[in-house]
Amino acid sequence: MEEKSVVRFANRMDQLPPYLFGMINQMKMEKRRAGDDVIDLGMGNPMDPTPDAVIEKLIEVAKDPKSHRYPESSGMPHLKIEIAKYYKRHYDIDIDSETQTYFTIGSKEGISHLCLAIMGPGDSVLVPAPAFPIHIYAAVIAGANVMKIPIEPEKSFLDRIINICESCYPKPKVLMLNYPHNPTGVVTDKEFFKEVVSLAKRFKFMVINDFAYSKITFDGYEAPSFLEADGAKDVGVEFGSFSKSYNMAGWRIGYCVGNAEIVQALGKIKGYFDYGIFSAIQVAGIIALRDCDDTIPELANLYQTRRDVLCSGLERIGWDIKKPKAGMFVWAKIPEPFNKMGAMQFAVEMMDRANVAVAPGTGFSEEGEGFLRLALVENEERLRQAVRQMKKAMENMIV
């Protein structure tokens, strides 16, 4: 008689599909091990270097044995002061560095742990769709119910919030926002956030805004902070990241700012999970916030140039493309007749036939069907080459 395995998982694992980027990366690595040159547009993983001043400070501090001890878990006092100064400088927002800031191991980790702190079985969270996976599945892991709202059009989005809050019991507990939006690149303005704060106070829900792409903006557009809206700190928090603005993706440093009670809840639950960010990285983060403002426009211009190259290339081969005003992705509608095969199969075909890794829209919920998310991380020549290879592959595909 065959013995049963002792391995048994929690029921929540049944609600988690295979992680999209893990699947894409596995396919990519298998191709590369076989000797193929895969152009990687699948993941928003910056290939450009971190500013020199940040790297030099990391090396300096890492050599000091004092930095090898457990770090300041919520963030070094000077780092918290610098993020408060950053918000004042860029958005004219007053942030109390002691009570309204907390540093996280990237914004993704911070959002995940905050969901555990403020959500549970019986709670509901409103999430724009399509969505970056953690915005949905952090709530799922916490045991909450996810209610997805199409992100466009904006007016309909706000009306849907009102309708849900008026018709559901219990009312939603949290609204998860993400502007500039990943994966679609949709942007918003201060008036939108003003309306959100009004609704949050009216229907008594909290707001989380993922602001990871705050400074990667194009064509003169400047992304507002959620906290710029009057009363925003009464109802919610904002998460930011060093990954995109300073090319520090692998360093794993992000932050949460805003409502002091919510920030405190995040700190309480993180106290049971981790000891914070390596001290040398925190000091390097101080340098980034204090001394690297001038590198941000240069980086945004680099992404804008890549956006223009990729969008114009896809348009030349017959794709209907809407240029994003922010972020590091192009949200591209798969052209007919190839959209009939579905986004996942089309992405597999692009990997197999074109040696181009792309992210299928269905990885961002079923609302992303028919789209691809293309990351602007490769250089201009590689982007042009990707378009040529995709064109050739499509010419040889049978639908």
Rank of each mutant, 00 (worst) to 15 (best):
M390F: 02
N45D: 09
P172D: 09
I398L: 01
E238Y: 01
D308E: 15
A280G: 14
Q26S: 10
I253K: 06
M344W: 06
M344E: 14
R353D: 15
D92L: 05
E366H: 13
C165K: 06
T99H: 10
I162M: 01
S74V: 13
E3T: 15
K333T: 11
K80T: 06
S5G: 11
Y221S: 12
M13Q: 08
P172V: 01
E367W: 12
I151D: 00
V196I: 15
G42H: 01
G122D: 01
D40K: 01
G106R: 01
M119K: 12
N209K: 03
G361K: 08
G185R: 07
S245C: 07
L158G: 06
K108G: 05
T99P: 05
R8T: 13
A347M: 09
L376Q: 08
N11E: 13
F226T: 10
P65F: 02
I118D: 06
A223F: 03
D352Q: 09
N247A: 10
K270L: 12
S214V: 07
I39G: 09
A249S: 06
L175W: 09
A223E: 11
S365W: 10
M341H: 03
C165P: 08
M397T: 13
A142L: 00
G231K: 03
V174Q: 05
Y86F: 15
Y179Q: 11
K322H: 13
F21M: 09
G143P: 01
M176V: 15
I398R: 06
G276K: 07
Q26C: 03
R33M: 08
Q282V: 03
D308P: 04
A144P: 00
L158K: 14
Y169T: 15
F273P: 04
R160H: 02
H78F: 10
D320F: 05
T217W: 04
K325S: 15
T101N: 08
E191N: 14
N163R: 08
M394L: 09
C256E: 09
Y213C: 04
A129R: 02
N301S: 14
Q304A: 13
A117L: 02
A84Y: 14
M147T: 03
C165S: 14
P121I: 05
E195I: 02
T184F: 05
E166N: 01
N379E: 13
E367A: 15
I269E: 08
G110T: 08
E82R: 13
V235H: 11
I317P: 11
Q282H: 02
Y272Q: 10
E109M: 13
E82M: 14
R32C: 03
N25Q: 04
I296G: 01
A326G: 14
I141M: 04
A138P: 00
F103T: 14
T305Y: 05
T217Q: 11
G75V: 03
V358L: 05
M29N: 04
V237G: 09
P65N: 07
E381W: 05
H135K: 00
N163Q: 14
Q345F: 06
V235T: 10
A53E: 14
A300I: 10
N379R: 04
G120D: 06
Y169C: 04
